[in-house]
């Protein structure tokens, strides 16, 4: 199930694309500048950054080095001690998500929990809660900035959207340097250090789930969540694309994703779709579930359902 690309494969695409951008000089400089853009740097770390390999090709020692370097850089930049993990996927687990739209009441607790958990720049949100007219699925009329005195508002329902972790993800196919891929447990991840910021994936995504890092995240030291994962919520360089990763730092350790934990209504159900006894399987098998833009054939692993 592992989709480890061969070394030459990744290199080939990355080189070819970067050459197209501006020749061999760009190939050497682009990753370097992207990485140096966050955190102070020592000379040794700058060089180590420059030669950091694609996540899937790094040896365990190289990964350990890289994680330590990330922790050092975070310390220099924010003054906080973070731990950057590399928890591997669990065997026999593919994550799925189901959301009960008749329970969701538009509180937006998930949105802010996600932001706090994943060290997002405070102007970025991985989850958009769309306010929709009852009985319609017209995304053009969806309002994500609704601001009522109390929710739910009359005649409206709420439809949270986030990365759907498609099984056949178009964003993965669009990436010219293979900086994004599907992990064996079904999570579509990004190697932020390999990403060149071209944003092709954002255009390929049918769900508007990918977000570009326009500037340094406006985080202060106190706001950093120190429990991070290399493919998840570690501090990210400027100028790369990021998105929901099912809270990989939590879910690979059996904890619930932050959005589910924060939801007071119990509308969010997360679990292993391969486990026949899991809650998610009960929902998928016993409720009328649907997926957004199912006809595109991207096989999203994010279902919506409705009570009765």
């Amino acid at each position: 199930m592992s989709r480890k690309p061969s070394d030459s494969h990744i290199d080939h695409y990355r080189r070819r694309f970067l050459k197209g951008l501006g020749g061999a000089v760009a190939a050497a400089a682009t990753p370097g500048t992207a990485r140096a853009a966050w955190g102070g740097n020592t000379l040794a770390d700058t060089f180590a950054d420059l030669f950091q390999d694609h996540y899937q090709r790094m040896t365990p020692e190289e990964i350990a080095d890289t994680l330590a370097r990330i922790e050092r850089k975070a310390k220099r930049r924010y003054g906080t001690n973070i731990t950057c993990k590399n928890t591997p996927p669990q065997d026999g687990v593919v994550y799925g998500y189901a959301l009960n739209i008749s329970k969701c009441r538009g509180y937006r607790e998930c949105v802010s929990a996600c932001m706090l958990e994943n060290n997002l720049s405070r102007d970025m949100r991985y989850i958009q809660v769309l306010e929709m007219d009852n009985g319609s699925l017209n995304f053009e009329k969806a309002d994500r900035y609704y601001d009522h005195r109390t929710v739910p508002a009359k005649g409206k329902y709420y439809l949270p959207i986030q990365c759907m972790h498609c099984d056949d993800a178009p964003c993965v196919k669009a990436c010219p340097v293979e900086a994004t891929w599907t992990e064996p447990d079904g999570i579509v991840v990004v190697d932020y250090d390999w990403c060149i910021g071209c944003r092709y994936c954002m255009i390929a995504c049918p769900y508007e789930a990918r977000h570009f890092n326009w500037g340094k995240p406006d985080l202060t030291a106190g706001e950093i969540n120190p429990d991070t994962h290399f493919l998840g919520n570690r501090p990210r360089p400027t100028g790369v694309v990021e998105k929901c990763h099912f809270c990989i730092q939590r879910t690979r350790e059996n904890r619930q994703p932050a959005c589910q934990e924060a939801c007071p209504t119990g509308a969010r159900i997360f679990g292993n779709i391969l486990d026949p006894n899991s809650e998610i399987r009960y929902v998928l098998e016993n409720k009328a579930v649907f997926r957004l833009k199912e006809d595109l054939g991207t096989e999203p692993k994010f279902w919506y359902f409705h009570d009765n």
Partner: peptide
């Protein structure tokens, strides 16, 4: 029955 309550404020417009 669950009473309506206040929502978390809407997201800000992206920087820039």
């Amino acid at each position: 029955n669950i009473k309506p309550r206040k929502a978390v404020p809407p997201p800000p417009v992206r920087r820039g």
